[in-house]
Simulated assay, not measured.
Amino acid sequence: MKNKLRRYDTFVFFLFIAPWIIGFSLFVLIPFGTSVFYAFTDARLPGAADYNFVGLANFSAMVNDSIFGKSLWNTGYFVIIGVPVVTVGMLLIAMLLNMNVKGIALYRTFYYLPTLVPIVATVIIWRLVFNSEFGILNAGLSLLGVGKTDWLGSEGLVKPVIILLQVWISGSGVLIFLAALKNVPKHLYEAALIDGTNRVQSFFGVTLPMISPSILFVVIIQTMYNFQMFTEALLLTKGGPNYAAYTFVYTIYKSAFTDLKFSMAMTQSIFLFALISLVTFVLMKLSKRFVYYEGER
């Protein structure tokens, strides 16, 4: 009787997860395996019958390509510089929205609105704001006696503009931080106040440790997003000027749909997957030293 119940429970279990298994196989496992297969061929189009196995030739060509280094450098900039800046920006905004002032719910709603706008529309608006000739920002600065600045045409300014754009659309991360701040126990602040700590010491001694799991989550999600950044680079400046915003995913896009080098695009995709996996693994390992989980203490 027990064996029949166990078999029945097992059957019901697999019956319920069957849609997920089918979806995972069709949309993740099979495409990934196909990508790995084509990465070792010279196929120019997906599904092409005429191709040859070339071993590691695609990987060698990718590394020796001059655009590879530039795109990897730009992507590394957005990860190493952009992720901390955007994360700190999210946290500061969340702390402002956590203040107990009149109409704070309205402010929270207004700040979250840009997140609801499609990223394509947001980038187009951003182009209008930072346009060197008739942009809103330059028009405002001209009233202060500041000359025109070519925000999107300068190699040194285009990356900060993209990072600022990410802060603008960071409503989801702000919402996560706001929820984490709301869940910090009040008695910890009271105990810290009794010990004679000021607000700065209370922030570093109480707030940051208690919200550290949320910080880790936001950092990992933002890191993955910046590794795969594409829309901003394409619509703002098409990777320019002089490849200053040419991200690695933009390189994959050009290989697949402009140069019609499908096998090279698959090779680059696998490299990016391995890089994201490695960075995520390192972050998770390092998190054991810095992230505080109350349930584990």
Rank of each mutant, 00 (worst) to 15 (best):
residue 21 I to P: 07
residue 133 E to L: 11
residue 199 R to L: 11
residue 104 I to E: 13
residue 234 L to A: 15
residue 180 A to M: 05
residue 154 S to R: 03
residue 67 I to N: 10
residue 106 L to W: 11
residue 20 W to T: 13
residue 102 K to P: 10
residue 54 V to L: 09
residue 278 L to I: 14
residue 72 L to M: 14
residue 181 L to K: 09
residue 96 L to C: 14
residue 14 F to M: 08
residue 240 G to E: 15
residue 206 V to T: 10
residue 118 P to L: 14
residue 96 L to H: 10
residue 216 L to T: 10
residue 109 T to K: 08
residue 53 F to C: 08
residue 73 W to M: 15
residue 32 F to L: 12
residue 27 F to Q: 04
residue 190 E to S: 07
residue 79 V to E: 00
residue 202 S to D: 09
residue 235 L to A: 13
residue 4 K to R: 14
residue 183 N to C: 14
residue 13 F to A: 05
residue 169 I to K: 08
residue 6 R to C: 03
residue 66 S to P: 05
residue 105 A to G: 14
residue 81 I to Q: 05
residue 77 Y to T: 10
residue 191 A to P: 01
residue 157 L to T: 07
residue 143 L to E: 06
residue 244 A to I: 04
residue 85 V to N: 01
residue 216 L to G: 07
residue 64 N to E: 04
residue 229 M to V: 02
residue 279 V to C: 01
residue 73 W to D: 06
residue 143 L to I: 02
residue 230 F to L: 06
residue 109 T to H: 01
residue 224 M to S: 05
residue 294 E to T: 15
residue 295 G to M: 10
residue 232 E to D: 13
residue 33 G to R: 01
residue 84 P to H: 01
residue 141 L to C: 08
residue 40 F to S: 05
residue 115 T to I: 06
residue 243 Y to E: 11
residue 113 L to C: 12
residue 136 I to T: 13
residue 63 V to D: 02
residue 76 G to Q: 03
residue 173 G to V: 03
residue 236 L to H: 03
residue 252 I to C: 01
residue 74 N to T: 14
residue 95 M to N: 04
residue 111 Y to E: 07
residue 251 T to S: 07
residue 21 I to S: 12
residue 75 T to K: 04
residue 192 A to S: 08
residue 274 A to H: 03
residue 190 E to W: 01
residue 44 R to A: 13
residue 2 K to H: 09
residue 277 S to V: 04
residue 133 E to C: 06
residue 142 S to F: 13
residue 49 A to Y: 07
residue 172 S to K: 06
residue 45 L to K: 11
residue 216 L to K: 13
residue 178 L to Y: 12
residue 78 F to Q: 04
residue 64 N to A: 08
residue 276 I to Y: 00
residue 279 V to R: 02
residue 254 K to D: 15
residue 91 L to N: 00
residue 257 F to W: 12
residue 31 P to T: 12
residue 107 Y to I: 09
residue 36 V to R: 01
residue 35 S to P: 05
residue 284 M to N: 10
residue 227 F to A: 00
residue 244 A to E: 02
residue 11 F to K: 05
residue 282 V to Q: 08
residue 11 F to Y: 10
residue 214 S to F: 04
residue 69 G to Y: 12
residue 56 L to M: 15
residue 197 T to L: 03
residue 21 I to V: 14
residue 55 G to Q: 11
residue 208 L to Q: 12
residue 188 L to R: 02
residue 8 Y to A: 06
residue 70 K to C: 10
residue 52 N to C: 10
residue 34 T to K: 14
residue 231 T to H: 07
residue 110 F to D: 05
residue 207 T to G: 03
residue 7 R to T: 04
residue 271 F to Q: 00
residue 184 V to K: 06
residue 82 G to E: 02
residue 188 L to W: 06
residue 62 M to E: 00
residue 174 V to P: 00
residue 231 T to W: 06
residue 119 I to L: 15
residue 7 R to E: 09
